[in-house]
């Protein structure tokens, strides 16, 4: 079960190659052609990525996560959301590596099969690094005015946190 991701990956690649073989596609030529495009895309996002990582690293190093957790936990206790998961919620839209280590911290401290551990697992499994995706997608194609993207994406993130605690209670209590 834990190797499921590997199987999906290998099945996906073999599926594409088999289909292309049957259709007599010029597979190797196509690969080189596509890979060349990919290279340009990767380079074009570097400036935006430096800008994002710089701001995010400073923000997380400033100790804001701990301060926010401390301030907001009484409020969260009232609506039944486990405050212990809050560091993960704050980091998950900002930083992929940061939220991963916050998630591991929670699992190690409270156990994977506790209520807190499960809510954290669902959040880690159901959310993406919002600011990273926004930076990469718009950075690559040179869009400067991103309008309501962040507002809508954060709506999805926040509702995801609340829904995670709701569904864990629904399925495991």
């Amino acid at each position: 079960m834990n190797n499921l991701g590997t199987y999906v990956l290998l099945l996906f690649i073999s599926g594409i190659l088999l289909f292309a073989l049957i259709r007599r596609t010029a597979i190797f030529d196509c690969f080189l052609e596509g890979a060349k495009d990919g290279m340009q895309n990767a380079i074009s996002i570097l400036p935006a990525l430096i800008a994002l990582l710089f701001a995010v690293k400073l923000l997380t190093a400033s100790g804001i996560t701990e301060a926010l957790t401390h301030t907001l936990s009484p409020l969260l206790k009232k609506i039944g959301f486990p405050a212990e998961v809050l560091p993960l919620c704050i980091l998950s839209p900002l930083s992929g590596s940061g939220s991963l280590s916050a998630f591991q911290d929670i699992l190690a401290t409270y156990g994977a099969d506790s209520y807190i551990g499960r809510v954290a697992s669902v959040i880690a499994g159901a959310t993406e690094t919002t600011f990273y995706a926004v930076t990469v997608y718009y950075g690559a194609i040179g869009v400067k005015k991103i309008r309501h993207t962040i507002a809508a994406a954060l709506c999805a993130d926040i509702s995801g946190f609340i829904l995670a605690s709701f569904f864990v209670r629904l399925f495991f209590d």
Partner: peptide, 27 residues
Amino acid sequence: VLFVVLNTACIRLIPTTAAMLRHEAGA
């Protein structure tokens, strides 16, 4: 905007990484 939001809140059928870390933590 719709497309980027779709990607930031992507529907994932298999939570591969989360399940792997849960396994390591003894779930």
